[in-house]
Structure formats: structure tokens, C-alpha cells
Nucleic acid binder design. Structure first.
Length: 484
RNA sequence: CGGGGCGUAGCUCAGCCAGGUUAGAGUGCUCGGUUCGGGACCGAGAGGUCGGAAGUUCAAAUCUUCUCGCCCCGACCA
């Protein structure tokens, strides 16, 4: 019998193995990450979920600044005409617009669109800020909310309003802009792997999957525990598409009018959903220590005020020391039975539980339990400032390794359409094939399997074998998956 | 927007097919007591426009029509 099935353990959520979407909803809501709101398609991000997002956000914000970018802020409302200048961009986004048509009780002369993304606003404003090659590169970022009229919404994964950062940069040369695209994709990989313990594939999107208005898009793709892919960050190369459409020019080194090359890149609150689906199990959420709002939950076990006082005084110096180690510790003093608290904090995914009661105190010890496998171990109180950071580090590493093993175990290479169809008929995961990059092939595969191309891995070589779908000469290796 | 499912207490649901006292259970919540190392137990209590509207009927949670919302699958998408 698995631990999860024993009486007494978390059983208030649907089973991940039987109903993955139901499990996901239960975990998000019962771990108090988010809830549905009175507004269709929009969610309330609750304190625990927001704290998780803040940890991801802060790590990414540091990286963004370290790589030379500055934060700023633009309006949430964009004049409709701004959005209509770049043909491909409008075509891609127009059906997702949510529009403000009235103000002060009167109809506006021009409708204002709630930003689905801010390329058009940036390009319009930057005409004033970019005059000379000396003003470049302009490396910017903004943290904001964006609005897209999604037909089918899911908490964190797809909502009509979501939080993200959108980076926008402008460069003198195409080569420099393309390096920027790579740099930021690397930042996203770092956030995903080193912070969220989520291994990702990196690479270029196919023509049909790219961002509307981009010359090409790149992304990181992670595998969720149901074998589906989740695009977890994107970095786009625009060439001079936007600067031409918005008549953005600068005076070059040879006194000629030139169009800057631009990029944009984004990572959103979707990452919270990714963490849930990449690490969660039958007992609920499982959080990587690096981003866990609470890394160590202390469950004091006592029956009398005297016992409580003894625990308090034993814990005080330890809590001070852990604070010095920057470990996020919380003591759950609530008047509830320990077993109840064990379950609740497991559901909420806290990496380490520290139990301390009379039996432990008698030996000057505490009991540590890892969320990962419920492994228990007694540790001398004085050793905690050394043991806990090391244990958190090991858990972080183990979670990344487990996620990578899972992905590898669900990744296959095939060389025919028949094999691809068979795989998705009876299995889940990533399939790598040679491909000729014709969109017709993507349409065929989508019709037969509902899977789509996720990306052409960075650094992958042109295969010798022909396209798995149509037999024409292959120009790339591509990863197929069912995607969120 | 197509297909399927569901709206009854904060949450999970029973009751509906075969209309009929004052609409129920578990859980959660409040109070009291006993408890406390894996979701305790006993007792008392609060909590409901049965999603909404119209219709049929002596009588509607239950039947009919319309409508709104939510979930799942698909199309669209971070």
C-alpha cells in the first residue's frame, strides 16, 4: 500500500493518477494558491500562492537587472490604433482584445484596449527616447498585468488576466538583438531549473507556433507529470518588424537613419501552475526549497503550558540562527492536533517538517521529516543551522533530478508518422523526430494526435534521415508533445 | 464557440426519475468539556432566495421552457 493510501494521510484531493485536471484544481484551491473570482476567467491569487510567485519573481527580477536591464512601467490601456500598425501582430491578437469604450459616461473618440502585451506601446513611445546609436542598446523590462480574452481558462495556466514581466530591448544590430534573445532564454532556463527544479528544453518555435509579429520565437518547455508540455517562458526576435511598423529610427554611426532591432521576452504566473504540475503528488503540492514560501514548518507538540514554554525556549535560539541562514521557517502554534497540521503542510508542499515535542526535547533533539519521501531523522538541536541548509540543498537537487528522470523516461525518438501516432495513442510525453519544417506536417500530426511541435532544440543538428512525417529531406530535429 | 457533465449550507454531496409535513448528511464554523507524536471524541449551536426568470399545478429542489455560471474534452492561446 502506498503511503498516500494509508488511512490518515492527505485524502481530500482527487487522485493525480486518475484525474489529473481534477487533482490540479483541488491542489491549487486547497493549498490556497488561488481561487476563482467573481469575474469570469480571472482568479484571486491568495497569499500563499502570491508568496510563491514573489519568490520566482524576485529571482527573475534579480537576473534581469544583473543582465543590465532596467524596470519601468507603461499604461495598461493602449489606443486601438497603436495595436493596428503591425499587420501580423494585430492578426494574432485582435480576437483577444478587451476594450474600454466609455469614460466619464461618454463614448471615447478612440477605444482603449487593455494591453494583451506592450510591444506597440513601447515602440510608439520610444520614438522620443531613441535618437542616436548612442541611445542603444535600450534594455528594459516591466512587471505588469496583461489581458487576453481566452475561451477556456484554467487557474494559473490560462486566465483572462495574468501577471508577468515583459522585457523589451532595442539594438543597433541584428546580431546583438539575437544575442539578447539567447541571453534572456538562458535566464528563463536558470529560473526554471535552478529555482523551480524544473528541467526545460530550449529552442526555436516553428513558424506556426511563433509570436505574432516576431521573425522567430524561442521558448523553454517543461514536462508536466501528465506528460504534457508547458511553455514556461518565451523570448522573441523581431528584427526590425516593429521599428519599421512604428517608424522608429535612430541616427547611425555613419549619419544614416536606421531602424533598431528589437526583442521581447516574458515569463508569467503560469510558472506557479508549472511548479504544481511538475512536482505535485497524491499528497498535494511539493515545492522546491528555493521558491517555497515556507521551507521549514515547525510543528510543536505539547499538552500543557509548561511543555509549550519548554519548546518555546528551546526553539528561540534555533530560530534566530536559522534566520541568520536566511531560511524561511514558520512555527505552527495553532491549537490543532499535530496530525492535522502534518497533513495540511504536506498538502501545501513545505519541503521539511520539524517536529519537536517532549520526547525530542528530552534528548535535545528534533525530528525532521522530508516532504519528498517522508524520511524521518532525529537531529540534535544545535546542529540544525548546519543540517537544514544542507538538507534543503539536497532536496532541491533531488527534485530537479526526479523531474529530469521523469522527462527522460517519457521522451522517445521515432522516425515515422505511424510511430508518432502510435506513441500518442497509447502514451504521453515528448517525441523527437526529424522534420522538414513544413506547417502542413504539423497540421497532419495535430489532426491525428492533437500534439504540436514544441520547439527545435537549440544546438540540435540537421538529421541525416528524412522528415518523419512526409519523407522529404529533414532540415531540423523537432520535439512534439501535447501542450497546455 | 462545438461536445459532455454539473449548479441544493463555507466545502463535498444525497434528495429530483415516480411533485406533497418545517429540505438532509458528512465536513467546516461557534461555544463547553475530554483529548493531543499522522486529518480526535462527546454535547450544544449558528448557517439555505435549492444558480436566476417564467410557466404547468391545489402544491415545484423535483416537471417544462428560457437564461446565467462552473468543470472536463476540443478549437484558440503564456
Amino acid at each position: 500500500m502506498a503511503d498516500e493510501e494509508k488511512p490518515g494521510f492527505v485524502d481530500k484531493i482527487r487522485k493525480q493518477s486518475e484525474d489529473f485536471p481534477g487533482w490540479y484544481n483541488d491542489v491549487v484551491r486547497k493549498a490556497q494558491l488561488a481561487d476563482y473570482s467573481p469575474v469570469k476567467g480571472c482568479m484571486v491569487i491568495r497569499p500563499y500562492g502570491y508568496a510563491l510567485w514573489e519568490n520566482v519573481r524576485n529571482a527573475l527580477d534579480d537576473l534581469i537587472k544583473k543582465t543590465g536591464h532596467e524596470n519601468w512601467y507603461f499604461p495598461a490601456l493602449i489606443p486601438l490604433s497603436f495595436l493596428q500598425k503591425e499587420a501580423e501582430h494585430v492578426e494574432g491578437f485582435a480576437h483577444e482584445f478587451q476594450t474600454v469604450t466609455h469614460g466619464g459616461g461618454k463614448e471615447l473618440d478612440e477605444p482603449l484596449v487593455l494591453r494583451p502585451t506592450s510591444e506597440t506601446m513601447l515602440a510608439s513611445v520610444l520614438r522620443d527616447y531613441i535618437q542616436s546609436y548612442r541611445d542603444l542598446p535600450m534594455l528594459t523590462n516591466q512587471w505588469n498585468n496583461v489581458f487576453r480574452w481566452e475561451l477556456r481558462t484554467r487557474l494559473f495556466l490560462r486566465t483572462r488576466e495574468f501577471l508577468w514581466q515583459e522585457g523589451h530591448t532595442f539594438h543597433e544590430t541584428a546580431a546583438e538583438a539575437e544575442r539578447e534573445v539567447e541571453t534572456m532564454l538562458d535566464c528563463y532556463r536558470e529560473i526554471a531549473e535552478d529555482w523551480c527544479a524544473m528541467p526545460v528544453l530550449m529552442g526555436r518555435k516553428s513558424e506556426s507556433e511563433k509570436f505574432a509579429g516576431a521573425q522567430y520565437s524561442t521558448s523553454i518547455e517543461a514536462m508536466m507529470k501528465d506528460g504534457k508540455a508547458l511553455q514556461s517562458g518565451t523570448s522573441h526576435y523581431f528584427g526590425d518588424n516593429f521599428s519599421r511598423a512604428y517608424d522608429l529610427t535612430f541616427t547611425g554611426r555613419t549619419n544614416t537613419q536606421e531602424h533598431p532591432y528589437s526583442t521581447s521576452w516574458g515569463m508569467s504566473t503560469r510558472m506557479v501552475g508549472a511548479i504544481v504540475m511538475a512536482h505535485g503528488d497524491e499528497a498535494g503540492l511539493q515545492l522546491p526549497p528555493q521558491v517555497a514560501p515556507v521551507q521549514v514548518i515547525v510543528i510543536p507538540i505539547f499538552r500543557s503550558d509548561t511543555e509549550r514554554a519548554q519548546i518555546e525556549s528551546a526553539l528561540a535560539p534555533v530560530l534566530d540562527a536559522l534566520d541568520g541562514e536566511d531560511i524561511r521557517v514558520k512555527v505552527d502554534w495553532r491549537d490543532l492536533r499535530p496530525g492535522f497540521k502534518f497533513n495540511e503542510w504536506e498538502l501545501k508542499g513545505v519541503p521539511i517538517r520539524l517536529e519537536v515535542g517532549p520526547r525530542d526535547l528530552a534528548k535535545r533533539e528534533v525530528t525532521l521529516v522530508q516532504r519528498l519521501d517522508r524520511a524521518k531523522q532525529a537531529v540534535a538541536i544545535g546542529d540544525l543551522p548546519v543540517v537544514l541548509p544542507a538538507m534543503l540543498g539536497r532536496i532541491q537537487g533531488a527534485m530537479l533530478a526526479a523531474a529530469k528522470d521523469f522527462r527522460d523516461a517519457h521522451t522517445v525518438r521515432v522516425d515515422s508518422l505511424a510511430a508518432l501516432v502510435r506513441f500518442f495513442a497509447e502514451s504521453v510525453g515528448f517525441v523527437i523526430t526529424p522534420w522538414c519544417e513544413r506547417p502542413e506536417d504539423e497540421a497532419i500530426v495535430k489532426r491525428e494526435t492533437t500534439a504540436t511541435t514544441r520547439l527545435i532544440p537549440r544546438g540540435s543538428r540537421v538529421p541525416d534521415s528524412p522528415c518523419a512525417i512526409c519523407g522529404r529531406p529533414a532540415t531540423a530535429e523537432v520535439v512534439w508533445a501535447k501542450a497546455y
